[in-house]
Nucleic acid binder design. Structure first.
Lengths: 179, 179
DNA sequence: CTCATTAGGAACCAAATGGTACAAAACAAA
DNA sequence: TTTGTTTTGTACCATTTGGTTCCTAATGAG
């Protein structure tokens, strides 16, 4: 069941909802039609479950990294969000879902917003940790800015090779001294 | 022909490629199958032409605004990129195309990159105009940053109501004094 | 007007779509 | 082993898909 969900996440993440047909989905999940429809009702439900799986696996792991990483500055840590991915053309599932599905499926929008908020909170906490004198509003503003940058980065990374130098850019936004 | 292209742009912009079926597309373009296939070969070609139309209409108009607007600071002008749209759920066609199509269609990727570059150039030129002493590398870096923010903004705007205060955020990035 | 060319529209097509029905098989309880 | 229940695989279904054909209606040149 868990491996089936992981398979669903993988293929929806790569191909999106509309471009993934049932045969694709079934083989990615390792299920046949009978057991798929018994367990997941329909394609849309499987997509929503795949988003939940992404939340529990990928988002949680990212939040964990942002929370626990040992770096000298906030920007050193936050730059990890922009580190080269081994499969940049799949981008970020949250971003993909926001673009393709959120406008026409409120449940997708809700989940995407929830995951976005988790990322923003983790970013903000990391900023606050290194800048304890900064007031919360400013930290939240900066976190929101970096979150927007992150999604822009993920979107553009699907079309072109990613540009670098993110650490110093983030440092500048946070008024940290660039090395 | 022009109005047909505009119709194609509108529906692909709103719905994306895969989620737009032929009946949808034909009625948006005001054509029947016969004349559609005569003029556009197939759905993919129509999509590519719709991207070109977007380039000539929307991107050009945006570039024009960035080039000619009369503002005191660069951030005042660039904040226009983030102004509330009357249909935020359709986002930006470039961003939509990058996310949905670019990884699986190199011609879409090329067009998206070309339009992105036009926007980036216009942003950079606007920055340079207000900061003549800034060296070109720094101006390009800032322009790239703002372009990433723009796409992130467009992606997130499809899922949730846009957050405001962009002028001051851009001002901060450009080291312009926030009012 | 005549004729050639083009554009438009509707019927049609094979293939693919998401989803269901149902029988066989695996499993658990007794 | 027998029974009842759940899971799995497959054949099937109506509908929709993108695309083609072909006939008719305009259109324009002479």
């Amino acid at each position: 069941m868990d491996t089936a969900l992981k398979g669903a996440m993988d293929i929806f993440w790569r191909q999106g909802f509309a471009a993934t047909n049932l045969p694709d989905l079934l083989s990615a999940m390792g299920l046949t039609r009978g057991s798929f429809y018994k367990a997941f009702t329909d394609k849309e439900t499987a997509y929503l479950k795949a988003l939940d799986y992404y939340d529990g696996a990928i988002v949680s792991s990212t939040v964990d990294t942002l929370t626990t990483c040992q770096t000298e500055t906030a920007s050193d840590c936050l730059a990890l969000l922009f580190a080269a991915s081994k499969e940049p053309e799949r981008g970020c599932f949250i971003c993909n879902a926001m673009v393709e599905m959120a406008p026409v499926n409120i449940r997708v929008a809700t989940k995407a917003n929830h995951m976005s908020a988790r990322l923003r909170d983790a970013i903000q906490a990391r900023i606050a940790k290194h800048h304890p004198t900064l007031d919360a509003d400013r930290a939240e503003e900066s976190a929101d800015l970096i979150l927007h940058l992150y999604f822009g980065h993920q979107a553009m990374g699907k079309s072109t090779e990613a540009s670098g130098q993110w650490r110093s850019k983030i440092a500048h936004i946070l008024n940290e001294s660039p090395v």
